[in-house]
Amino acid sequence: MANRLYVASRKGLLIYERGAKAGWRHATTAFRGSPVTMVLASRDNRTIFAGLNLGHFGTKLHRTTDDGASWTELPAPSFPKVEGGDKDAKAPAVSAIWSMEWAGKDKPGALWLGTAPAALFHSSDNGGDAWTLLSANLPPVNAVRLV
């Protein structure tokens, strides 16, 4: 039975733990005050990813490998630059991280990530240090369950 509960909220990443008798208790809050759109933890809870949407300042991705004691900002997934994109309001840009999932037990460190606007990114074996766009122009949905 899981003893940790992660709640991605508009005001931060709320972390709850199951007590021996008293049920769930709030343990800590990371990214206090910042909108968190996605959270993904490893089975041992040592590695946790948090996708943030900082509004004015864009989409960010953070990772801890020490159970939240320290966080490191990773390069956020982004669309490749298109020619003239810096002057074209319609050129794509990631506005939110909506979904993340581990690629499987046989692919340690590999991850899938879904964004808005709809696109699928993959991090092959580096635990989120780099992302490759696999497909864009998916159907216009904002939430994707990756399985």
Binding site: F79, P80, P92, A93, V94
Partner: peptide, 15 residues
């Protein structure tokens, strides 16, 4: 840079 500019190098909308 990534806080002020978006993927395409545009100034973010509300900066």
């Amino acid at each position: 840079r990534g806080y002020v500019l978006d993927d395409q190098g545009r100034l973010r909308l509300h900066i």
